[in-house]
């Protein structure tokens, strides 16, 4: 079991309000990702759930029970920190076993559970090493191992991959995903990286300046962002935002079109433009173009596209994929 509900949770540090009243439910077994730019309050929100910070007002419910005034050590949650926060003076074994020792479990049980966790995470050969003797990826696994032996109600991840290099990050992303499939335990994962959010989440919670901007599945957010903020934040490369006559004639203040949802022609189309740069990735081509009277556009074409700088092109958005926003940045339709 491990459902988590937040009821009008607010957090202020002194006069500075960091979380402005958040209502949110996370179902048992769900993989929820909090995503947003730095300073949006996502880590604070996670720490409120963990109990490492007090809420200023509102309630945190774990499994339907009010946990607002319960200390972090009694909430039954496990956390993986950005810095890993391994105990440097303990071996890998000691690190993984610590929570079990604190829970007063017997030596046999502890050893058995540590071995099982180590086997799952490919750490068996390293059990007697100290954290400083491990690579970044191994440390990350120890941090995860420390969390899973406790069989917590939910796992909390605070930007766990941001200290790893790109290749390792992809690998760990897959491993955490597999872990979730195997354990079926609730996971809450904080990241500023929308790719991590898109690839891992069942449910994404986009945060903006201390409030929830939108909650939904990755595809919901991709297909129907409810406002300019989410539209701009989700998807890579970012959505092209166009104001002016093109938007007005469609009855919107701003229209958005994703790079992959526009067609390019060398002869005719809605927006004449000049190619600035074409990035050939093999599988795709990213085209950076300057549209006349509109500004820069980024376009994504499948496969090889024979384009070169200074070439004149015509860009036409696919109407079905067009996003319309009103003057307040809200989605229309």
């Amino acid at each position: 079991m491990g459902s988590i509900q937040l009821k009008s949770v607010k957090k202020a540090f002194g006069a500075v309000s960091v979380i402005n009243g958040i209502d949110l439910g996370i179902e048992n077994g769900e993989f929820a990702v909090f995503v947003g730019p730095s300073g949006c309050g996502k880590s604070t929100l996670l720490r409120l759930i963990a109990g490492l910070e007090d809420v200023t007002s509102g309630q945190v419910l774990i499994d339907g029970k009010d946990a607002t005034n319960i200390g972090p050590s009694k909430r039954g949650l496990a956390m993986v920190f950005q810095s890993y926060a391994l105990y440097p003076h303990m071996s890998v074994r000691g690190n993984i076993a610590f929570a079990l020792k604190m829970a007063g479990q017997g030596a046999d049980v502890i050893e058995q559970k540590v071995r099982k966790a180590a086997a799952t995470l490919n750490l068996t050969d390293y059990l007697d090493r100290k954290p400083r003797q491990l690579s970044g990826g191994q440390r990350q696994r120890v941090a995860i191992g420390r969390a899973i032996v406790r069989e917590p109600k939910a796992f909390l991840f605070d930007e766990p991959l941001s200290n790893l290099d790109a290749a390792l990050r992809v690998q760990m992303r897959v491993e955490i995903g597999e872990l979730h499939n195997a354990l079926k335990t609730t996971m809450i994962y904080v990241t500023h990286d929308q790719v991590e959010a898109m690839t891992m989440a069942d449910k994404i919670v986009v945060l903006d300046r201390g409030s929830v901007a939108q909650v939904g599945s990755p595809l919901e957010l991709y297909n129907r962002p409810n406002g300019l903020f989410v539209a701009g934040f989700i998807g890579s490369p970012t959505m092209n935002m166009i104001r002016g006559p093109s938007a007005e004639k469609r009855g919107a203040a701003t229209i958005g079109i994703r790079p992959e949802h526009a067609d390019i022609s060398t002869t005719a189309g809605e927006w004449p433009a000049t190619v600035r740069l074409a990035e050939h990735l093999g599988s795709d081509t990213f085209v950076h173009a300057e549209a006349d009277g509109i500004g820069p556009l980024t376009l994504r074409l499948e496969g090889e596209a024979p384009l070169h700088p200074d070439q004149r092109i015509f860009v036409t958005p696919r109407e079905a994929h067009l996003h319309k926003f009103d003057k307040d940045g809200k989605r229309i339709g």
Binding site: S73, M79, A85, Y87, M102, R146
Partner: peptide, 11 residues
């Protein structure tokens, strides 16, 4: 962080 990790570990 490390002390907070201990708290999360139930210490």
């Amino acid at each position: 962080d490390i002390l907070e990790a201990a708290r999360m570990d139930g210490a």
